[in-house]
Design a protein around this nucleic acid. Sequence first.
RNA 1: CGGGGCGUGGCGCAGUUCGGUAGCGCGCCAGCUUUGGGAGCUGGAUGUCGGAGGUUCAAAUCCUCUCGCCCCGACCA
Length: 483
Amino acid sequence: MADNNKITPQNEDYSRWYLDVIREAELAEDSPVRGSMVIRPYGYALWEAIQSGLDRRFKATGHVNAYFPLFIPKSFLQKETEHIEGFSPELAVVTIGGGNTLEEPLVVRPTSETIIGHHYAKWIQSYRDLPLLINQWANVVRWEMRTRPFLRTMEFLWQEGHTAHATEKEAREETLRMLDVYVDFAENDAAIPVIKGVKSDREKFAGAVDSYTIEGMMGNGWALQMGTSHYLGTKFAQAFNVSFLDQNNVTQLCHTTSWGISTRMVGAVIMAHGDDRGLRLPPALAPIQVVIVPIWRKEAERGPVLEIADHVHASLRDEGMRVKVDRRDDQTPGFKFNDWEMRGVPIRIEIGPKDVQQQSAVLARRDRPGKEGKNFGVPLAGVAQETRTLLHSIQENLRHQALQKRTDNTHRVTSYTAFQDVLREQGGFLHVHWAGTTQDEERIQKETKATLRCLPMENAKEEGQCVLTGKRTNQTAIFARAY
RNA sequence: CGGGGCGUGGCGCAGUUCGGUAGCGCGCCAGCUUUGGGAGCUGGAUGUCGGAGGUUCAAAUCCUCUCGCCCCGACCA
């Protein structure tokens, strides 16, 4: 493998590796404002692929899109006590508009439960108006102390679903349905296996009754919350008087939910699959699934090579694949190979004079390094079929590798001593029996930097002893260092 | 907010100790030769040295003030 000096190896400094990949693959760059980033076209294309995978699933489950305003009267947030307490440290507030001090400060939305609650109260009168299933794609702002591109920025893009239901049962079903949509997206599109779980009181959304999460494992063994779904009970309905008349002409409060996935998902894709050569994108999300690199030595070879390259391009495009021919003539093939590998393109097709001669092409897969991942002499007639098969295989292989890594780095421990040792020496996820309190969680974080990621829902429910308190319990928990 | 570091062509940096014509690498532009794993040669363009004030014959360099950014920690999708 040719060394590259542009990307720091993961095991040397994972954090620098992450930043190097983002810079070299041109996903994003810093803006002049601390903690904000510019999402560059390639990074935005990746986000668009994520959006499209999610949006399709939202529509399929009966949701529609709408848009609510960026500015929210500050008093709205204050109507729900836990909500304002949770969010006030990270609010950006506008106090001056048009040169004059505003009568009421406007909060730049950190999330939209309140403004949406206000309008749902107007839209919902009768049980016939329910359920109300709306999603919005928007930007939000949270004043963060410590930021990282995609993982935590002051402004980020996301979708937030907000639904209102007649009964707790329906709302809880919705909460879990959308959690499953997220699981489906994460595993099948992003190729990242996730753990579904419940958040502890300490970690749950400010104003939720129950928060659910999907947690993925990143390349360094740290956890990343990749999506959340909340059952909000009647808390926001109460605060904003979101109520309806039921079949018996009795006024009832709505039960509401909210759920979101953000541009953090881009960070998840980078970290779950990337290697020392750069990005490795799952075909389902890759903005460019196949790149064709034409190769020629003599000017006379150029025409025939490009002709075949264009032909292959057309045949793959006609089958719905996202293909690009790299026609740059100021770069060598070797440069292009490395360049596209860094950008994570799943398949590279090389077409040179020898291939023209043999009416064949070379297929190279990104998920297998060097010659091992190259298939020489694929007949042109079979390239489209071969490419299609290969895309599926790469998608599956990335998911498999990520799952393998998570399995290898998930440890069951039964004592707090082992907990600390394993975390320090190996890292990864610690799967433990748990019956601790919020204070116990705080203590663990203080002593080990690990946090309670979730109480997994898929759980054998075997009885055991709490790793910290020793109490008997059949509840388990995942602890890990987290972003 | 505490601790550390840094502001010099587009990017990364040297130069600051000990004041004396602002440099290097990458990138960029032009030309020629190259092109199956990050091409070579030749020529060229690009700077209010973060800002303000001061000392001095002379300041990137010394002094004072100021602004900003990055890293580590406390909070977080």
